[in-house]
Amino acid sequence: MAKTVRETIKDITKHHLLEKKSMCFGQCLTAVGWVGGTLPELYEEDGMVEVTTADVANGGFVVGAALKGIRPIYVVRYQGFQWYNAPIIINYACKSKEIWGIPCPIFVRSIAMEGAIGPVAGSSHHSLFQRMPGSKIISPMTPDEFDFAYKEFMKDDDVYYVSEHRRSYDNSEELKNVIQQDADFTLFPISITRFDAEKARLILKEQGYKINIIHQLWIKPFLFKKEWREALNSSKHGGMVLDDDYEEGAASSIAHSMMIDSEKKVYTFGLEHRTAGFHPDVDNLPPSPESIAERVKSIINK
């Protein structure tokens, strides 16, 4: 049976602590559940370090550990908590190489979830890191992608913001691009929207629409590959970047880069620009397959 994302993260963490002799920091790591089953059952003597509830200081502890060359993993269980955890990572670790010539690599595992979790903890917040120099942002949703993210980090000396999503943890399948001649439209989904983009594609296929899907693993740096540009240019009605962060962040930035470098319009579809409540009636969720399909049709039939 193929390995899931959950098992992949767990194995990588175990390897990082026991083989690489590094450390993994975070709050409530050893609590029931071991962060969605993504952590091996190890303790402080093995490098699994429970930190305080003081998020801002915790970010600083990890930066200090990184300065000592241990390449720590830092687990932030809800991406919204980055508003407290990010300041010292963004302002020190991400700038250290440029100001002082001292790299400060950290593997920041930032975990999104959705539904009934309220205005702070819901969905992704990778745009928070995007606007500052010195970080790389990657959003792996498959076992191979997570393995790739870790290996890239280990040969690099930058801060890696790894935008995870709990809904991907059971996934054991790789996600493939779908690029067709003379497509009607191209979707560029990020994070958890990648799964629903595929469902939306099938809905639209049944209705006679030909839709490309080009999965976005890297959020920053964004590299617009030649085959992606060609697929977009040959799409009759342009494309759309899907995200589970607010549209005004990474999605808009990537769409802008695509439009500058292509002949087509690129739209965005992410969280609505409003606060999420807890009840389903007032939640603010990533685009569903049905809503993606409707949005695509409204653009095509404009």
Binding site: V56, A57, G64, A65, I88, N91
Partner: peptide
């Protein structure tokens, strides 16, 4: 880096690691 006082948690983290 200019964030007042952040050398305290950074120093503590470095000391913890080393």
């Amino acid at each position: 880096d200019g964030l007042m006082g952040n050398q305290v948690p950074i120093g503590v983290g470095a000391c913890f690691a080393s």
